[in-house]
Design a protein around this nucleic acid. Structure first.
Lengths: 198, 198
DNA sequence: GATAAATTGACCCGTTCCGTCAACTTATGG
DNA sequence: CCATAAGTTGACGGAACGGGTCAATTTATC
């Protein structure tokens, strides 16, 4: 699924080389600046013209579909999988909130996924739905274990993530220490009345 | 300070009438749609051409300065004053957070103020700083009374408000019940968790 | 070196709104 | 009533931003 480059039917050699370059440049640009980065910039980094991105990949949506696996899918699914394996509902929720917020800070592209920019990209939407589904089970487990604030719905939980995505996308980046401190306050608001038993 | 219209030097009668119309239309449009509403729309509502807004008020910034008092200043200062008169640090903070979030929901223009869109408007910036200053004292009082989460800074508190402004501005509006429920979770995260003397 | 594949720069597009100006209209006072 | 200055306005150009396209050119391949 990840690190592709292995898909090139009867393409001419130069075309194959360009597809590869574009792929590499797109992954880097998307990871650093999010999925809305100008195609011109990707093209320049790949030493290729913008038109080639259209010819080979079919514009931004095609490009996103082609590289999203290397941009965010791995990390996002990784966070979810890691969270799944954490024992204890409270610990699992705390771990996940910290991990997803950290990922949102590091990788602007996750926010584009969560916010469903580019709804024409099927893979992006699939990823987004996977996240939503996980949030549902997390909240359900949290309530079953009685560790979540009364009345907190899966949508409330999801909104937490979306609000953070919007803040990071449209506001200025706080320093990491500030951000992490605020993560703790967010957690305190949803994660049951009892504090860490330390 | 509020409901002006009383400022018209040697203007011709039609000009005075237009200033008044523009004023009224701007207050309504700004309150309903925020300070970024197209000037064309205000002009249309005032049955006047866009150019007249430039002639009489000097464009968007002049217009904002002219009407901000009737758009948000009253309500915003009202919330702060009401909060000031609430006894008890915890109660004061809870009151303020609920009130300001309610205002942000009802009046998109407050968010434009808090986010400092239109930094060229002196009055807007003054309002914004007034808010920031109040946040400082609120947090200081909260810590003095030991009712705020450990380590919460004035900036953290302010960021809470800004994040909400961004979410409301760039995200979809949640239903009021959803929004109010989430207000409670936000409060829970900062307002000393159920005062558990540990 | 013929030929089809591929690339590309230059181009136009759409969006959105701001701000301006010459030409026109209207209020005013004598 | 009309001269004149004050006021209004529609039409215009502009900026910012990036998407998407195509005729002309270059390049790989046999």
């Amino acid at each position: 699924m990840a690190s592709s480059t292995g898909s090139s039917p009867g393409l001419r050699s130069d075309a194959r080389r360009n597809v590869e370059r574009i792929h590499i440049a797109a992954v880097e640009a998307f990871r650093e600046q999010g999925l809305a980065v100008p195609l011109e910039e990707i093209a320049a980094a790949a030493r290729v013209s913008k038109a080639t991105i259209f010819n080979r990949l079919g514009g931004r949506v095609g490009l996103i579909d082609a590289v999203i696996g290397d941009v965010v899918a791995g990390e996002l699914r990784g966070v979810i999988d890691d969270a799944r394996s954490v024992a204890g509902a409270r610990e699992r929720i705390c771990f996940y909130v910290r991990a997803i917020r950290d990922l949102q800070y590091r990788l602007p592209a996750v926010n584009d996924v969560l916010l469903q920019e580019f709804p024409d990209s099927e893979k992006l939407m699939a990823l987004c739905h996977a996240g939503g589904a996980f949030h549902e089970t997390l909240v359900a487990e949290g309530h079953a274990a009685g560790v979540l604030a009364q009345g907190l719905t899966p949508d409330d939980f999801h909104a937490l993530t979306l609000n953070n995505a919007l803040a990071l996308k449209y506001g200025g980046l706080p320093s990491k220490p500030d951000y992490d401190r605020r993560t703790a306050f967010v957690l305190g608001g949803i994660c049951g009345p009892v504090q860490r038993p330390s």
